[in-house]
C-alpha cells in the first residue's frame, strides 16, 4: 500500500430537496408546495489510498450510496471537496465556490472511477462482449479489434469468456454482475466503486461475485465497497468505515472494528448479522 491518495473526501455535505406538489384537493384548498430537505451527508471525511480496499458498512438510508455517487458526480454536493487523483470531478473552484465544469471534462474524469451498481445496469441491447466493448470504442476511442481483444481479456478475468455472446436476458444475476465488473474494469480506472454488488442476487449467486471481487482486490486494485456481507467485508477490507445518519461513526481495520467496536451502531450492526462481539465499553 502506498501513501498516494486516490480519493480524498473532505467535509462533504449533501442535502436532498424533495418538493411535493399538492394533489388536486390540496390545490383547491390552496395548499402550497411542500419542500422537504433531508441532510444525507453531514460532513464526511475519508481517504482512499492506492491499492487499498475500503469497505463501507451501515444500515439502509445512512448515506452510503449517496457518498459513492457523489464521488463520480452522479449526485452533486453542497459543500466540501472530493478529489480523485487530485482533481475535483464535476466542479471547478471559483472564488472559493464550487461551479459545475463542462460536461465533457467531467465525462473524461469519470473514467478514473469504475462503478458497479446494485442493479447491474448492463446495456440490454448488447451482448456481454458488446457491453464491455461499447465504452472502449465510444469513450476510449479504441478500434474495434483492439476493443474486442481488451474486452475478451476482461471477460476472462471474471470467468465469462464462454458467455460472451449472451444478451443480459440470457445471463443469471451473478453473471450479469460479473459482466458489469468486467465492463468497469476494462476502462482501467484508478478506483472501483461497488454499491451493494450482491444485494440484488439470489443467495446462491452471491459467492461467485464476491470471489471475483476478491480476486480483483488481490491484484492490487483500489476499491470502495458498500456491502452488507459481513464475512466478506472482514476478509477483503484494509479499512472498514461505518456510516450512520450521514456521518462516519467508526473507522478502523477489520480486527479493530469487528472485535473492539467503539460505536454502539457498529455493535448493533455486527450483532444483527450474527457475529459475536463484545459490546463497546460505555
Amino acid at each position: 500500500m502506498s501513501d498516494e491518495v486516490i480519493v480524498s473526501v473532505r467535509d462533504v455535505h449533501k442535502t436532498f430537496t424533495v418538493t411535493k406538489t399538492p394533489g388536486m384537493v390540496g390545490r383547491l384548498r390552496g395548499t402550497r408546495k411542500e419542500v422537504n430537505r433531508i441532510e444525507v451527508l453531514k460532513g464526511v471525511d475519508l481517504d482512499v489510498h492506492k491499492g487499498q480496499t475500503v469497505v463501507i458498512l451501515g444500515s439502509s438510508g445512512s448515506g452510503k450510496s449517496t457518498l459513492l455517487r457523489c464521488m463520480n458526480k452522479l449526485e452533486t454536493i453542497d459543500s466540501g471537496r472530493i478529489l480523485v487523483n487530485g482533481h475535483m470531478v464535476g466542479y471547478e473552484e471559483r472564488g472559493g465556490k464550487l461551479v459545475d465544469e463542462k460536461a465533457s471534462v467531467t465525462a473524461q474524469k469519470r473514467t478514473d472511477l469504475g462503478m458497479v451498481f446494485q442493479q447491474f445496469n448492463l446495456f440490454l441491447n448488447k451482448t456481454a462482449l458488446g457491453n464491455v466493448m461499447a465504452p472502449l470504442q465510444d469513450v476510449k476511442k479504441m478500434s474495434r479489434p483492439d476493443a474486442e481483444q481488451h474486452a475478451l481479456e476482461n471477460l476472462r478475468r471474471v470467468g465469462l469468456l464462454d458467455r460472451k455472446d449472451n444478451y443480459p436476458s440470457k445471463l443469471s444475476g451473478g453473471q450479469k454482475q460479473r459482466v458489469a465488473i468486467a465492463r468497469a474494469l476494462a476502462m482501467d480506472p484508478s478506483v472501483m466503486l461497488f454499491d451493494e454488488p450482491t444485494s440484488a442476487l439470489d443467495p446462491e449467486l452471491v459467492e461467485e461475485v464476491l470471489a471475483v471481487i476478491k480476486a480483483i482486490a488481490a491484484q492490487g486494485t483500489t476499491m470502495v465497497i458498500v456491502t452488507h456481507e459481513m464475512q466478506f467485508a472482514r476478509d477483503i477490507a484494509d479499512i472498514i468505515v461505518v456510516m450512520d445518519q450521514g456521518v462516519i461513526v467508526e473507522k478502523g481495520t477489520p480486527n479493530e472494528v469487528f472485535f473492539k467496536p467503539k460505536h454502539a451502531k457498529t455493535y448493533a450492526l455486527l450483532k444483527r448479522s450474527g457475529l459475536a462481539v463484545e459490546p463497546p465499553a460505555a
Partner: peptide, 12 residues
C-alpha cells in the same frame, strides 16, 4: 440506470 451506467463509464 442505463444512463447512469453510461455516465459512470465516461459517456457525456
Amino acid at each position: 440506470g442505463q444512463t447512469e451506467a453510461a455516465l459512470s463509464l465516461g459517456y457525456t
